[in-house]
């Protein structure tokens, strides 16, 4: 299966997951719960185990 990684929204602290292909892209993720835009590195918690 295509690899995914989990992030935590720095605003609402809810967790969701993303395609691994955007793990190191310079883009803003969008929290599905509160719509906060943030970079992957701003996530206070990341699970990207391969």
């Amino acid at each position: 299966m295509d690899r995914v990684f989990w992030v935590e929204c720095p605003e609402c602290h809810k967790r969701y997951f993303c395609e691994y292909g955007i793990r190191f892209e310079d883009i803003n993720l969008v929290c599905p719960f509160c719509k906060k835009e943030f970079k992957v590195d701003e996530s206070p918690w990341i699970d990207d185990r391969g």
Partner: peptide
């Protein structure tokens, strides 16, 4: 133009991960 979409609860009963 690329756009952030997903997660979405998909046919598999899993969410499709956030992606471009």
């Amino acid at each position: 133009v690329k756009e952030i979409v997903d997660p979405f609860g998909e046919v598999t009963r899993h969410y499709q991960p956030q992606c471009i």
